[in-house]
C-alpha cells in the first residue's frame, strides 16, 4: 500500500518540522531561521493547491496571487474596518474566494494553454490594480493589519510570534497536503488525471469535466486565500504589491520547480525560491539573475522538477542500506 507508506513518510517529515523550532530556540540566531521558515510554510499552503490545479487537473493559473490578496484584504476588512475577531476574517476570505473562483472558472476554464494562462494572468492583474486604486484599503500605500487573536490567544504577541505563526503555517500546510493526497489517490484523482490528458475521452467516460476543473480551481483559490489572510496578520501590514504578478509567477515557479507531478514538490519549490534571497545576502541585487537562471536551468535539465532528483537520491540511499 504505497499510499500508506506515503502518509507515514509525510508524518515523519512533519514531525521533524514540528521539532525544528524547539531545536532552533537553543541558538541565538534561531529566531531568524524560524522567521524564514514561516513564510515558506505560508507559500507552501498556496503552492499545494496550485500544484493540484497545474499538475493534476492540467490547468494553468498565472493569477493566483489575486486570490491571496482577496484573502488578505478580507481579513483586513473584517478585523480593521469592522472590528470583528480574526477568525471571521479568514471565514470571509474563504467564502469570497469560493464565490469568486467559481464565477471566474465557469467562463475561463473552457480556455486552454496560452489562452488560459493569459486569462488568469489578466484576472490576477486586474484584482491587483483594483486594490491599488481603491483608496478604502489604503491604495498603493497599504494598510496595517490587526493582530491575529484566536480565543484570546494573540499570535502577534512578540514573545511567541515567530513560533506561533510557524506552527500555524505548517499545521495548515500539513492539513492541505493530507487533503490533497487523499484526493489524488481517490477515484476523483483518477478522473482528474484522465481529464488532464484528454478531456473529450474523459467526458465520454462519464466524467463531468467542468465540475472537476471548477472544484480544483476553487480549492486552490481557497488555500491561496487562507495563505493570504495569515500572511496579512503575520506582516501586520499589507500592500497591493505583496500580491502582484511577480508573486503569481513565484507561486507557479515553486510548483513547477518542485515537481508538478508530486504534491510534495510544492513545498520543495517554496523552500528553494523563498530561501534564495536569504542565501544571496549582500548580493541580493543579483537575485533576479539567479532566480531566472535557476528556473531556466531546472526546467531544461529537470523537466519533472527537482523532487524527481530528491527521489532518485532517496532511492539510491535506500539501495545502499539494503545492500548492507
Amino acid at each position: 500500500m504505497s499510499l500508506y507508506r506515503e502518509k507515514k513518510g509525510l508524518l515523519f517529515f512533519f514531525l521533524i518540522i514540528g521539532l525544528i523550532p524547539l531545536f532552533l530556540n537553543k541558538f541565538q540566531a534561531g529566531g531568524y531561521y524560524i522567521g524564514v521558515l514561516t513564510p515558506i510554510g505560508l507559500y507552501s499552503l498556496a503552492a499545494v493547491g496550485l500544484n493540484l490545479l497545474i499538475g493534476f487537473a492540467g490547468q494553468i493559473s498565472l493569477g493566483h496571487a489575486g486570490f491571496m490578496s482577496i484573502g488578505a484584504y478580507s481579513s483586513v476588512y473584517v478585523c480593521a474596518k469592522l472590528g470583528y475577531p480574526a477568525i471571521y476574517g479568514i471565514a470571509l476570505s474563504i467564502i469570497i474566494n469560493c464565490i469568486l473562483a467559481y464565477l471566474i472558472s465557469k467562463p475561463i476554464l473552457k480556455l486552454k494553454g496560452h489562452y488560459l494562462a493569459m486569462a488568469t494572468l489578466g484576472v490576477g492583474v486586474i484584482i491587483n490594480i483594483v486594490f491599488r486604486e481603491f483608496m478604502y484599503f489604503g491604495g498603493g500605500e497599504g494598510i496595517s493589519v490587526p493582530d491575529l487573536k484566536i480565543f484570546s490567544f494573540n499570535f502577534n504577541d512578540y514573545k511567541i510570534k515567530e513560533i506561533a505563526y510557524f506552527y500555524l503555517a505548517w499545521s495548515l500546510t500539513l492539513a492541505s497536503l493530507v487533503l490533497s493526497i487523499n484526493f489524488i489517490n481517490s477515484k476523483a484523482g483518477r478522473a482528474l488525471r484522465a481529464l488532464h490528458l484528454n478531456e473529450i475521452a474523459a467526458a465520454a467516460l462519464g466524467i463531468n469535466v467542468s465540475s472537476y476543473k471548477t472544484f480544483i480551481f476553487v480549492y486552490s483559490a481557497v488555500l491561496a486565500g487562507i495563505s493570504g489572510s495569515i500572511t496579512a496578520h503575520y506582516n501586520s501590514y499589507i500592500l497591493p504589491s505583496t500580491f502582484d504578478l511577480h508573486t503569481s509567477i513565484k507561486l507557479v515557479s515553486m510548483v513547477i520547480l518542485g515537481g508538478v507531478m508530486d504534491v510534495k514538490g510544492a513545498i520543495l519549490g517554496a523552500f528553494i525560491i523563498t530561501i534564495l534571497p536569504e542565501l544571496l545576502g549582500k548580493f541580493d541585487e543579483y537575485e533576479g539573475l539567479v532566480y531566472g537562471g535557476i528556473i531556466i536551468a531546472a526546467l531544461i535539465f529537470f523537466p519533472n522538477g527537482l523532487i524527481s532528483l530528491i527521489k532518485k537520491i532517496n532511492a539510491k540511499i535506500l539501495k545502499l542500506f539494503k545492500k548492507k
Binding site: N182, F183, L205, F215
Partner: peptide
C-alpha cells in the same frame, strides 16, 4: 467512474 456515487468534495 460513474458507478461509484459522484460527490467530489467528500474525496478530500
Amino acid at each position: 467512474h460513474i458507478k461509484c456515487h459522484p460527490g467530489i468534495i467528500k474525496y478530500l
